[in-house]
Design a protein around this nucleic acid. Structure first.
Lengths: 245, 245
DNA sequence: TATGGTTGTCTATATTAATAGACATTTCGG
DNA sequence: CCGAAATGTCTATTAATATAGACAACCATA
């Protein structure tokens, strides 16, 4: 499996970036776990069929991300390797099931507003179009690195203080509890992968061309009444979604 | 929302590719549905803050994908905008649930071999490493456009004729039936999104920089014994995954 | 049929990405 | 303490990307 990996030219994506993506992938696949080091620059240059300087550009980008660290005379070592594994199931909770993978998990309220429910959101929440909803923008980070940003909608009539509770508690589950909803389940999830837009690039601190996985989900109370319409964008190279059926 | 959209320089991703990605996104979001036309090149150049020639490079790439078509004197029209919706559930079948979205659905055997089970595959199938498995490479297309390619592993001892059956029947479900397995269920699915590699680009007829969603799944018989380890790569801009819990 | 708006094509130039080579600096092991 | 192996830095050159401007070809329509 150590043969030459493919990079293509004249594709609008610089070679150093393609190589950085491949090395990032190799790191998260654990290919360098044995030594904890990235192979020497000359060896990588040989594998990818490019000049050593091109490899250096790729490694510099990864160092900038904090993924690797080069030490003169020794080599380049892997500092971090992870795709956080997100469980997606009937009882999906953001914070649960992640606590064993990372120490510091944080969800931050970015903005909130009251907006009328439009077509897709009204349908998802099962309410008439035009009904007021609380829109909540949030950013979730693990160990200081953003992993996802989300836009959620809650029916205002039922959960008037959702935004405030979430801002204080930093958790949707806890905010629901504060609103008197002890339990809820995931009823539908749709996934799409696409390139990140400008807003996502800056929020998630990604570089252009990066990928996001967009999950559109509906949560409902135990009686099956929808309580949340959420659109979460994950930084694709930081997560793995684990579907439990 | 029609103000200037963000493209960034010196990021390793050429401006024309960033712009192509943004236009592709706008098309799939239905932003040009009213007229069926992409805005004039000069207008796009203004929106993105780049030269007209740069926009032309982006549009040329999209025309190459068959997404738009330019007509001299008139403008550039949208030719295609769609994502197939794939159901993912405990009873995931490729062909089922898609027949209402597309007329012509096809799965083709690309290659097959007998290989020893390695770590991940052996673990997934619950067999000792080194046991022989049948490896099957397949390509699935809808209406002549490839949507996914997959690599599957079946324990040879139990399903010796899997490759032949699949080649003849064009369906995993039918091939299992021919091997005497009437029913099976999905026990785990993991999703990752990443840039397509060279092999995937050519198989799925994608343009460089395109995204694939990689689903690593295990199917088991009704007794819970794993029967298939599959890694399916979907062309991300052609599909939507619908998770049913 | 004249005109304005659009895509198509050409030339020229500047900036960025990639290759090539040389050599310095640091680390580690014999 | 020497030498092999690794990263760091510099110069020079070529290829790809981006900008700029001019004008041709074509379409719709007033």
């Amino acid at each position: 499996m150590n043969s030459k990996k493919a990079v293509e030219r004249q594709t609008g994506v610089a070679l150093w970036r393609q190589i950085a993506d491949l090395i990032r992938l190799a790191i998260s696949n654990g290919e360098y776990d044995k030594t904890g080091m990235v192979p020497p620059e000359m060896m990588l240059a040989g594998q990818f069929g490019v000049n050593r300087h091109t490899v250096r550009s790729a490694l510099a980008a990864l160092a900038e991300e904090g993924l690797v660290q080069a030490i003169q005379g020794r080599g380049t070592m892997v500092r971090r390797k992870e795709r956080l594994s997100f469980p997606i199931s009937r009882r999906t909770r953001f914070s649960q099931g992640l606590s064993d993978q990372t120490r510091d998990l944080e969800a931050r309220l970015l903005a909130h507003a009251v907006v009328p429910a439009t077509g897709e959101i009204a349908t998802g929440l099962g309410i008439p179009p035009g009904m007021p909803c609380i829109e909540v923008e949030a950013l979730s980070s693990a160990d200081g690195r953003p992993v996802s940003c989300s836009t959620s909608y809650f029916p205002q009539a039922r959960f008037p203080g959702m935004a405030q509770h979430f801002a204080q508690l930093g958790s949707i589950t806890k905010a629901f509890a504060a609103e008197g909803l002890a339990d809820y389940v995931r009823v539908s999830t749709e996934l799409v992968a696409r390139h990140a837009d400008a807003n996502e690039l800056s929020l998630l601190r990604l570089s252009p061309g990066a990928i996001v996985i967009e999950a559109t989900a509906i949560n409902a109370d135990p009686d099956g009444v929808p309580v949340q319409f959420a659109r979460t964008r994950f930084a694709a190279d930081r997560v793995k979604l684990k579907i439990e059926t």
